[in-house]
């Protein structure tokens, strides 16, 4: 059996450190996801109304987010704004802000799409029953939109978790950075550590994201 360099994992607290790094990545993406879902629903609902200014705002916002590489946004937030405005931003906070800006725009677009994909006659049929506008939205439009939305938003959250690998570049010690540190520290003793450690990182990412995509698939089948 080839030497996969797995033994470094059991040295000291290496494995616990990796898990800690994963938790940093997950924490950032989950906080950003929570903000994105809340703000995205608000923005998306407002943008789904006819002739809404929010629709225009969302389009511009989304355009910028799509064109800009996430790394540029991270650098702009972390290095750029701290210099320009002289405030103090930890790498983690900067990452959460950038991910939330990104997530809110995408989530907003998903919500807008889901709400406007509900046929107008469904709304009319609810109105004809004498429900108030807010009740029409709450009991007829929203539940149907949410069913279309859940698989899509889980997909967005999964992409967020994956993209956290970039934040090592603004100095946040997340799982990938921890992995590099472990490999670096054991260069002499376990020259093959790179394989074993990155394989472990791979498995941990997989274990973190897999339940989400399983849930998405299940809900898609259940409600589709």
């Amino acid at each position: 059996m080839p030497d996969l360099g797995l033994e470094v994992l059991w040295k000291g607290k290496n494995f616990a450190r990796l898990l800690g790094g994963l938790w940093v990545a997950l924490r950032i993406s989950l906080i950003a996801a929570l903000i994105s879902v809340a703000a995205g629903i608000l923005l998306g609902v407002l943008a789904s109304r006819k002739h809404s200014v929010f629709s225009a705002i969302l389009q511009v916002w989304l355009g910028i987010i799509h064109i800009m590489p996430q790394m540029v946004l991270l650098f702009l937030m972390y290095f750029g704004t701290t210099r320009a405005f002289g405030w103090n931003l930890s790498g983690e906070t900067a990452a959460i802000i950038v991910f939330s800006l990104w997530g809110t725009a995408e989530m907003g677009d998903l919500v807008r799409g889901a709400v406007s994909s509900i046929p107008a006659i469904q709304r009319e049929s609810a109105e004809a029953l004498g429900l108030r506008p807010i009740q029409v939205f709450r009991f007829v439009i929203l539940p149907q939109a949410v069913r279309r939305l859940i698989p899509l938003s889980i997909n967005l959250i999964t992409r967020m978790i994956k993209t956290t690998s970039l934040i090592t570049l603004i100095g946040v010690v997340e799982i990938l950075k921890v992995a590099q540190q472990i490999i670096e520290a054991n260069r002499k003793a376990s020259p093959n550590a790179a394989f074993g450690v990155y394989l472990t990182v791979f498995v941990l990412y997989y274990l973190a994201c897999r339940p989400l995509s399983l849930a998405a698939k299940h809900l898609e089948k259940h409600w589709g």
Partner: peptide
């Protein structure tokens, strides 16, 4: 208007039941 509409029952060509 919602109160008035409650006094008018409407049935559509394509049923328009709520699928959820």
């Amino acid at each position: 208007l919602p109160e008035m509409r409650r006094k008018i029952g409407m049935v559509f060509q394509n049923y328009e039941l709520f699928p959820h």
